[in-house]
Nucleic acid binder design. Sequence first.
RNA 1: GGUCGGGUGGCCGAGUGGCUAGGCAGAGGUCUGCAAAACCUUUUACAGCGGUUCGAACCCGCUCCUGACCUCCA
Length: 486
Amino acid sequence: MDSNLYIYNTLSRTKEKFEPLHPPLVGLYVCGPTVYSDVHLGNCRTFVMFDLIYRYLLHLGYKVRYVRNITDAGHLEGDMDEGDDKFAKKARLEQLEPMEIVQKYTLGFHDVMRLFNALPPGIEPTATGHIIEQIEMVKQILNNGYAYEVNGTVYFDVEKYCKEFNYTILTNRQLDDLLENTRELGGQNEKRGRLDFALWIKAKPEHIMQWPSPWGTGFPGWHIECSAMSSKYLGNSFDIHGGGMDLAATHHTNEIAQSQACNHVQPAKYWMHTNMLTVNGTRMSKTKGNGFLPHELFTGSHELLSRGYSPMSVRFFMLQAHYRSTLDFSNEALEASDKGFKRLINAYGLLEKLNPSQKSDIDLKSLTERCYAAMNDDFNSPVLIAELFEAVHIINSVYDRKTAATAADIEALKKLMDDFVIGVLGLKEESNQSDDMGKLLDFIINLRSEAKVNKDYATSDKIRIGLNSIGIQLKDNKEGTTWNKI
RNA sequence: GGUCGGGUGGCCGAGUGGCUAGGCAGAGGUCUGCAAAACCUUUUACAGCGGUUCGAACCCGCUCCUGACCUCCA
């Protein structure tokens, strides 16, 4: 289990050798979506990138417990402690119960993740399902002296915490600057310090989602759910905590503070943050209104798109950038990824049709090593993909009989592609050569081949053009005819 | 204002003190009934100005531009 995996840790701002706390077990916690509206493509990027990370850890042989929460309570609209609950607001808008909102968008999220071929996490806990755990944690933080209660609301005492711990460890900000530049927020008259944040919030009578607590009826603050659920399922201290970069400064900073105040340990050994998806250089976000919804992308129903793109092409587009880089979204970039993905996956399909030779002029050992080296270097999927195109080159060349490969080489090629394209990158063929449509197409291709043998090119071209018009491309070569979806 | 990033060829996007990233697009060729695919060859590059160095796109300084976070947000 001694891998050479290096992970960029936000805590240290360097790449560190990955050494799990309890190998071969790995605890992975990722902040999931807030299910009051559809997830957009930027959200999806984070979950696809952590899917890559999860898959690679599994591939290396780790036993990974992957926890990704569903936030279904506790998020307020606008300023701290004053705004509407997002779920209640949306429920009023759509004339539904808040839990109907939660159900609707949770199911939608799962559908999208399935389309992107993301493995489901082992545990997907919800905030509303863990109110008791959150209350217990708040009680413990109060007992430890890092929080105080005012009129049914419990606040975290950041100033007190700062005397013993480094509050800004994730972002390296200066506390004085934070104090000077933090905007005037709600609840100021109740709070002792302007950086203090709510652990438990007293519910107004009209607030729909509320629960009894030692401090009266209320609901949990924004950050406590992840602390409570991660420690419940992964222990007070676990291996990797991930999420989008936008969460680092506030949500994750406060999570660390809560866990330290409660358990006196750093919750996670490695903090990983994925970068943002941008459109024309600015971040895609719900509030900016430049968010793409996955189905708009799949169907092409968006003004910036010339056509629809399949989930696998979009996944491939995401994988072609490193998770810590911003990725700029455009129709042109997507078009390029779509073609690249098809090139890769078509080569994968050709693996079954390769003919072995006695000799070999390829070096798969070095290629395989480079694939591992790429992923071991902080999950560098773009470099991995570049290496895999070397494999594509080899496969095509062997198929064309321009390069010789032994049966053992071909097996190794298959393993390489299975391991990395299917297993690690999580890509898959979107059309299957052996299903009913495949058999039907084989039949049609045979008819066309007969026409070609008889030099009846009018018929053969008619078939080819006709299939092309419904999205099936035929490719003639020495071995016969193959097809793929356009 | 503070913190942290980034500026790479037509586009997306890696990387590094000296060795082709890769994909897409463009050009030429091979193959082919034609086409496509595949294969071969190939053009376009590291924001600007200084400095360190035998050598810098990569290190340092300055300038310009730009992004994220600092308020819920993946």
